[in-house]
């Protein structure tokens, strides 16, 4: 967080926001997350053209087009893989994946796990509203087992999983949780996540006003972490597994080496390779 402060702000919100207006419902938590992202990027003074926002499918995944950054809006659940390819090809870019609980944890679960494990330098920002919004309110992997819905009357009967604990077990190098109603707090988490080398995972609890109106009470349930982030996965694991899911803050800061198999300067002389084949 040590940074020489400029006399005037080089970048602000408007430098990162595109002319495309979000289709999110008014009142959606994602508006707060969008603000947080822009504040974090402005704080880090990242030129918009040096930032790539990669997403999959869902409400949260609409963000790339709402930014002035480079964006990639791909298929459902696979954004971490796209981001991996992009970051390895262009290591100088700041790569941010924006995703939701269905996109990242359900259809994209395998990529989530392996992105944590691979530890490429990028930030995964998951806007978790515990519901599928784009398809009209189906339960996601983080929805409580007893949440009643059309597709699962009386609830799914399936316990939600703990994404932060999964990320820790999979090897993510930075793990934090924020709340969309606290955009400056989320901005701070994002700044730390982007600055920390390797794969950073930030879950942001972001209420869905349309399908989960009860989530507006989340603002009364969230509480900030009273302890310092740990570098010890065992401590972080205990904390995450005994947490109520509403603690915000940084849970874990790891020091695993970043995956660095990046594409370098291309050599176009194939003669040595072709010579191997000569007979």
């Amino acid at each position: 967080m040590n940074k020489a402060e400029p006399l005037i702000a080089r970048y602000s919100h408007k430098d990162y926001k595109s002319a495309v207006k979000p289709i999110w419902c008014p009142g959606c938590g994602h508006f707060g997350v969008e603000s947080s992202l822009f504040r974090a990027l402005a704080y880090l003074e990242l030129p918009p053209e040096q930032v790539a926002v990669v997403s999959g499918i869902g409400c949260s995944s609409r963000i790339p087009a709402y930014t002035q950054c480079y964006g990639f809006h791909g298929v459902h659940g696979r954004a971490p893989a796209v981001a991996t390819g992009l970051k390895l090809a262009r290591p100088e870019l700041t790569v941010i994946v924006t995703s939701g609980d269905g996109d990242a944890f359900s259809i994209g679960g395998n990529h989530f796990i392996h992105a944590c494990r691979r530890n490429v330098d990028m930030t995964l920002l998951v806007m978790d509203n515990e519901v599928y919004g784009m398809t009209k309110g189906q339960p996601s992997p983080t929805t409580p087992a007893d949440w009643d819905s059309k597709i699962a009357p009386g609830g799914t009967g399936v316990n939600p999983f703990a994404p932060l604990a999964v990320a820790l077990a999979s090897g993510a190098n930075f793990i934090a949780r924020g709340f969309s109603g606290d955009p400056n707090g989320v901005a701070r988490l994002l700044v730390e996540a982007i600055q920390h080398p390797g794969f950073s995972f930030v879950q942001v609890l972001s209420p869905c006003v349309t399908y989960r109106p009860e989530e507006k009470f989340w603002k009364k349930m969230v509480h900030s972490s009273s302890v310092e982030p740990t570098h010890d996965p065992a401590v972080a694991g205990h904390r995450l597994l005994s947490d109520d899911g509403f603690t915000t803050g940084v849970f874990y800061i790891g020091n695993r080496p970043t995956y660095t198999a990046t594409v370098g300067t291309s050599d176009n002389d194939l003669s040595a390779i072709e010579e191997e084949l000569a007979i």
Binding site: M1, K3, E5, P6, L7, I8, A9, R39, A40, Y43, P183, N184, G185, A187, R188, V191
Partner: peptide, 11 residues
């Protein structure tokens, strides 16, 4: 002039 900005969380 434009005041020196703080970090978002320092306000």
């Amino acid at each position: 002039s434009q005041p020196r900005p703080l970090a978002p969380w320092d306000y």
